[in-house]
């Protein structure tokens, strides 16, 4: 299903991805993070948050298509949809995966360090970002990227 039939000549970036893939993946992730929040500051929540954090790893290193959520999208969701209006640059969603990895990874690290209360907090923040991405396509990390660059540049 990966070989696409391209609808005519397009000015999309060379290795464009279906923009709906990352959003479906974010929806799956948001559900898992909601469960972490519901479990609360307990070991089970830490384990689930670690699973989510590990799921962000291939997304941040390679791209959203390398995650199991991306695989689910290609196998289960995409065959039921029409072709996308246009393809999307894979870099923004990959950056979003990195942001997700940092947020959930911090929660896991604090949880392993004995601060279990940090687990639902990290899950809550990541849930907000993932749910916004899934519902309206807002990439929180991307919105803050330029502010971060401005800030970093100002300190140098």
């Amino acid at each position: 299903m990966t070989s696409t039939d391209r609808p005519g000549p397009q000015t999309a970036p060379p290795a464009g991805i279906d923009p709906r893939g990352p959003r479906v993946g974010a929806g799956i992730t948001a559900v898992l993070l909601a469960v972490v929040v519901l479990i609360g500051p307990r070991t089970e929540a830490l384990v689930l948050l670690a699973v989510v954090a590990l799921s962000f790893l291939p997304g941040a290193l390679v791209g959203t298509h390398a995650t199991w959520q991306g695989l689910l999208f290609r196998v289960l969701v995409r065959p039921r949809l029409g072709p996308p209006e246009h393809l999307e640059d894979p870099r923004p969603p990959r950056f979003a995966q990195l942001v997700g990895l940092v947020v959930t990874g911090t929660g896991v690290a604090l949880g392993l360090g004995g601060v279990l209360a940090a687990v639902p907090w990290a899950a809550g923040i990541a849930f907000l970002a993932a749910a916004l991405n899934a519902t309206v396509g807002l990439c929180l990390g991307c919105e803050l990227y330029l502010l971060g660059r401005r800030f970093r540049g100002a300190r140098v």
């Binding site: 909601a34 929040v37 519901l38 639902p120 849930f127 907000l128 749910a131 916004l132 309206v136 807002l138």
Partner: peptide, 24 residues
């Protein structure tokens, strides 16, 4: 559990609010 549920509901409301403002 009740407390966690309340937290999740608050998160969902916050998400919806941010989404609406952002989209507008």
């Amino acid at each position: 559990m009740a407390q966690q549920t309340a937290v999740l509901v608050a998160l969902v409301v916050l998400t919806a609010a941010v989404a609406l403002v952002w989209r507008r």
